[in-house]
Amino acid sequence: MQLSPVIFYLIAALTVGSAAMVAFSRNIVYSAFSLLGTFGGVAGIYVFLGADFVAGVQVLIYVGGILVLILFAVMLTHRIADVQITNRSVGRIPALVVIGIFIFLLIQSIRETPWAKAKEIVYAPTTTIIGEWFLERYLLPFELASVVLLAALIGAVVLARKETRE
């Protein structure tokens, strides 16, 4: 018996379970902390797919950046005492039915499509080739990304500062 399918199923269960907590939890702080499990599980899935650099980026940016940002926003916008009241959800039952049918159809079509088989799967470090491609084939999107990040940085500062009028 191989060990890797067991580990994959554990990681997949962690990912999906934490995502379900995000979707269903009544307390927004629990939702925010459950995102940690989802992001970590997705990083594990990247490792399974041989994408070591993407897994590292996932941990650095999602867990280290976005999650901390979300937690800051939760703490800044709630009086901790009435956290439960504000994580309202509306129309859960119809949404659950529609999403359930949707996921069922997606999984059905995934199962019935004859996917092309990979020729030969190699597990090799990807960082070098990603770095080269960023500076050759994907140079323009790479530079545009830096402009987008700069614009987002300035926009976030402008939006979040307190309005001071003379």
Binding site: V22, I28, G100, I103, L106, I107
Partner: peptide, 25 residues
């Protein structure tokens, strides 16, 4: 399948939550 289930849960969160931070999650 994992991606599909994650997408469904994310869509559910966006559709049902009325809290802006939850929608971003």
């Amino acid at each position: 399948v994992v991606g599909a289930v994650l997408f469904g849960l994310g869509l559910f969160t966006v559709l049902t939550r009325r809290n802006a931070i939850s929608i971003l999650m």
